[in-house]
Design a protein around this nucleic acid. Sequence first.
DNA 1: AAAAGAAGGGTAACAGTGTTACCCGAGAGA
DNA 2: TCTCTCGGGTAACACTGTTACCCTTCTTTT
Lengths: 208, 208
Amino acid sequence: MTVTAYQQAQRQGQGVVRDVILDAAKRLLVGEGPGALTVRRISAEVGCSTKVIYTLFGGKDGLSEALWLEGFARFERRLLEVPAHDDPLARLHEGLAAYRDYALSEPDYYRVMFQGAMPGFKAGEESVRVAKRTFDLLVRGVAACLEAGVLRGGTATEIADVLWMAMHGAVSLEISDFFDQGEAEQRYRLLCASVLTPFLASAEKDAS
Amino acid sequence: MTVTAYQQAQRQGQGVVRDVILDAAKRLLVGEGPGALTVRRISAEVGCSTKVIYTLFGGKDGLSEALWLEGFARFERRLLEVPAHDDPLARLHEGLAAYRDYALSEPDYYRVMFQGAMPGFKAGEESVRVAKRTFDLLVRGVAACLEAGVLRGGTATEIADVLWMAMHGAVSLEISDFFDQGEAEQRYRLLCASVLTPFLASAEKDAS
DNA sequence: AAAAGAAGGGTAACAGTGTTACCCGAGAGA
DNA sequence: TCTCTCGGGTAACACTGTTACCCTTCTTTT
């Protein structure tokens, strides 16, 4: 059962084709929204038949899963851009702002990731595990604050989850146009500050 | 241009048929999820041709809009079940719990209302206005707390919006299976308490 | 070296979707 | 009674995801 050179080349070739297809799908998602993600459209964009998508991704669900994970990968890349800081709390705040930034900069990806924008697709367990790892960054940011003593009153995962829920709610409603122009940003800041306040160690009552 | 008895009967008849169709759609949504909401399926359920849906609703979008508003109507009905209370803050807390209750009891409606579960459908401006009125209940609950002096530090709409964002985020992630079994309820309680704490007039630091 | 086997990929079909042009038939108005 | 308007059924259109069939190409075997 040796792997022949041909098989290797073939596999590499398939890998390249896979990337080309995935790139076309990403382009369609960002450019025209989830509605443009049809097997025929993507294969036409690439210049191959629909069959290729079935052999390489095992159907539309496989491609959807790849796109879903790509969304989290981009998300993580954006979160990693947040520079290190002396003050862990300031860094956490910048992370919270980066969360909204990403969602607003690529709302269709956000919809795919969190609002089931691809009808019929449901991420598998393994993918969910991978995707959730993105939030380890948030947990670590909270943990740093706990260690520095600027936050208290909960475990890192508890506080991180609470922050996540709040941010997701805000961003989710914003990209669904439930807020008026301009209102959203102020509300987001107020929400982040409010959620964090009860966990501040220096618990002055600050209502800004 | 008098309205004849026939026209009136006709219109009444159409109204009845409209309700029958809408009922079938509601049944399909609750019973089988948004995926079952196809024009053919609904008309088959009712026993008419697809054309009727087009004359009575002007296409699938019209029917979708009716379902969307129905979701908010049910939501409002659930929120109105929260009994009056001497303590406005206790009542507010029960309202927050009712929010999650509704979303968990009819997740497919919630998905339709807030996650765009009907592909291609986007609610019109007028419908959005009507839907948003549901949240007047929440604003009034917050306003009562402000008047009673148990909350402070923001306007009623500000605090209500912050609560809404937080609750929506929590519930939205929960029905999308991002939390483990049992975790969700505790997180929801922690979130509600956290968001509200900074606005409490009796600002003891209470981390429960 | 030639035949046999395996496998990727194109074509064209299937069943499903929303939508509509075309009809027919029933009631309104003359 | 004759016309005419209009609701509604049939059947088609252009889409969707998916797959059976076939051809080509490379590997393997004799």
